[in-house]
Design a protein around this nucleic acid. Structure first.
Lengths: 225, 225
DNA sequence: ACCCGTATATTCGTGGGCGAGTATCCGGAA
DNA sequence: TTCCGGATACTCGCCCACGAATATACGGGT
């Protein structure tokens, strides 16, 4: 599914959410509030897109200009309010984002899928570097959450989620390194041989024909099975 | 860090990796191989970008045209090989992707950060839907991995990683739902009150000033602390 | 012998994302 | 009083991703 949105940039979601909960605002003020409430990091917002997104939301009737006041000789500031259609879009968008799990891929996973292009020893070293970085970030994250005792946790769930995922990543990397060291991960010898000789070891060839690691949930090509 | 790459599309990484490990190929053949080896889902590849990316890799000297043969009356096919600079770029890119953890945000996390715009009961229902979907996908994924016994696990690490992360997500959602049900998640009553009365409960206002859930690892704004 | 669906292989247009630039205002230091 | 740095508020334009269109070849069914 995952319907094509008229406005697809997640900054648009943040704007709709803000206007839905609060009073009408002009773009720059929205940006300020979003920064203050930490949405910036949650959504990876690029402020260069702010006015484009606002314009698009307006064009599609999700928000509308209310007043246009000017203070002193400041440039004119257009104040926007969310519309009925905007509220509808917001709810519908949220329903999709929460309920529908679509295949998201992150850069680390992409790298893992071609990790074999690096020699095993270098790969191991890099993974150890990453593990250390993730552990450190998680420790800082945990401390930060522990310090925010006065804030109701409902407002921190996205942060708790992010931490949980990062911790899972650390655990997984640790276990991978352990398996490599213990020799329980099959294929490492071939991997090493490949980088030492430059030759594809026997057994690699048919594998390239075999391998079908489809993520579940995707449609298989028609001819399969 | 996270240097700006001359070619930033991850499809470029996949192409470099393929040309580095195998023989020179023409674009369409690369695409075929990448599909076969499952890189498609690992990197969320859009095939519409194929020729643009190949062109960019060429323009920056990471790959170069070798021959340009034509079979029968087929359109001419340009065969590309990786260059020295290409191999260097590939290794450097991989080093960065594996070792450097940069703030990645996914759509679900973004949605969580504004979950309060939905009434609590609807949010809970949606989370339950998601949980069911994730559980089902994970079960299928586990089965698939279990069936691929003849394949060395080194070639499946990205898939095992993806599964581990998804399982962590399921666990986290389950625990969140549990905490809401048990009442150990603070703030749910205010959240519900807000949606029933339309009024921001006391205690929400100062929070909007307070909240500074910076992800660790990011620089704080200068004036803080 | 012909038809048609699928595989092969590539081109093109456009829309939007976002980095970088611009202009004005204000408060404090010297 | 003047200077300057940062906050305020917005504009612009490049570039790239990618959906959709295109065109020919091949193989198998009737």
């Amino acid at each position: 599914m995952a319907k094509r949105r008229k406005v697809s940039n997640l900054l648009g979601l943040a704007i709709l959410a803000q206007l839905s909960a609060g009073r009408p605002m002009h773009p720059y003020e929205i940006a300020t509030v979003l920064k203050q409430t930490g949405k910036e990091s949650d959504m990876n917002i690029k402020w260069g897109s702010l006015y484009t997104v606002v314009q698009n939301l307006d064009r599609h009737g999700f928000i509308e200009a209310t007043t246009s006041n000017r203070d002193g000789r400041r440039p004119e500031r257009t104040v926007y309010a969310i519309t009925g259609a905007g509220r509808e879009e917001l709810r519908d968008w949220m329903r999709e984002l929460v309920a529908v799990v679509e295949p998201e891929t992150n850069r680390f996973e992409a790298a893992l899928s071609v990790l074999a292009v690096l020699p095993p020893d270098e790969a191991i070293a890099l993974l150890e570097t990453r593990l250390a970085a993730v552990d450190a970030a998680n420790a800082a994250h945990r401390t930060m959450l522990a310090e925010l005792t006065e804030l109701p946790r409902v407002f921190l769930i996205e942060s708790e989620y992010a931490l949980a995922i990062r911790e899972a990543e650390a655990t997984w990397i640790r276990s991978l390194l352990g398996e490599i060291a213990a020799g329980t991960l099959s294929g490492v010898d071939d991997w090493r041989a490949y980088h030492e000789t430059g030759q594809l070891p026997a057994g690699f060839a048919q594998m390239l024909d075999e391998e079908v690691p489809l993520e579940p949930g995707e449609d298989r090509p028609l001819e399969d099975r």
